[in-house]
């Protein structure tokens, strides 16, 4: 009597059909991503095979024509990371500050307006950011870049070897920094809103100022989620293509001088060089695309794991 009896939940043929159909689409989505990686690898293989994978990852130049092709993603990867880091350094404090303003300081009506404006910032096409960055942001930032290089040159990243301050990784990074504000701000806002009300009110009832509440209740709670949001912003910045392509002018020298001209990210380089460089060039660009793909995949997955753990776990 007390052995459980197996109940078949579903006898209906139509339901089985529905489940199978829906499931196959779900699996199709999965297959698609795997296929993207597989095809990129397959088609870029000639580029990897030429001098080996290690060489591809460590060579800085990108000459694919002529008798002695020599190419690799080292410089591109380096500058991708530099631009993304500048973007994070510029964008994250602004985004987190905005999120704090929205969740802690703004009156309710202003809050809704601000959130809508940030939504709008998120849908501005990146090519528009590129235009604006090139024609408006850059002329205004060049002076500041010179100022930094003159007065703060004892910090290595602010030193320069040339006096051309336009088309630099710094300017591209600032532009991308503005572009990642919406995503970082959105995650940060969500995390701040989940900070425990009890502790918050407890601190306030003890006479704490808002700053104290933020420092002692909100921030400790939000730290991990914010780390995730930073990674998310980093992933987005790494993949940003068109805006960076409009700003930078590619060079293949790895240097710490972010304020001077030079440096291009992988994504921007692909957009700029696509269709030039012959067959080997195509393969090499695909190889670069694959490296970018793997790199952003790792960063994004890491980010979503962290964000989900800190947001999802506490919501229930």
């Amino acid at each position: 009597m007390s052995t459980p009896r197996v109940v078949t939940t579903d006898h209906l043929f139509e339901d089985r059909l529905y489940r199978a159909g829906v499931k196959s689409v779900g699996i199709g989505t999965f297959v698609l991503l795997v296929a993207i990686g597989a095809f990129l690898l397959l088609k870029s293989w000639p580029a990897f095979a030429r001098h080996g994978v290690i060489s591809f990852l460590t060579t800085t130049g990108f000459t694919t024509l002529g008798h002695h092709p020599s190419f690799g993603v080292a410089a591109l990867l380096y500058w991708s990371v530099v631009i993304a880091v500048v973007a994070v350094v510029v964008g994250v404090p602004v985004a987190v500050g905005t999120a704090l303003f929205i969740s802690e300081f703004a009156p309710r009506r202003l809050r809704a307006v601000l959130v809508t404006l940030i939504d709008m910032l998120a849908v501005v096409p990146s090519v528009i950011f590129g235009l604006w960055g090139f024609y408006m942001l850059q002329p205004n930032l060049v002076g500041f870049a010179r100022f930094l290089s003159v007065h703060l040159s004892f910090i290595p990243v602010f030193s320069v070897h040339s006096s051309v301050y336009s088309s630099s990784a710094f300017i591209a990074g600032v532009l991308v920094g503005i572009m990642i504000v919406p995503i970082v701000c959105s995650v940060a806002r969500e995390i701040f809103s989940l900070a425990p009300l009890g502790e918050r009110e407890g601190a306030l009832a003890l006479g704490a100022t808002k700053a104290t509440v933020i420092r002692s209740v909100v921030m400790p709670f939000a730290r991990r989620g914010l780390a995730g949001s930073v990674m998310l912003g980093l992933g987005r910045a790494l993949g940003e293509t068109v805006a960076v392509a409009i700003i930078v002018s590619p060079s293949f020298i790895i240097s710490p001088h972010i304020l001077q001209q030079g440096g291009a990210s992988i994504a921007a380089f692909i957009a700029l060089r696509f269709g030039t460089g012959g067959q080997l060039g195509s393969a090499a660009l695909l190889g670069a695309g694959l490296v970018l793909f793997v790199f952003t995949l790792v960063v994004n997955l890491g980010a979503s794991v962290i964000v989900n753990r800190s947001v999802g776990g506490r919501r229930a």
Binding site: R5, V7, T9
Partner: peptide, 14 residues
């Protein structure tokens, strides 16, 4: 009315 089996992990006898 057989809504029990909708819950994951639910079993029955009788």
């Amino acid at each position: 009315n057989r809504m029990h089996e909708v819950t994951p992990g639910a079993e029955l006898a009788g």
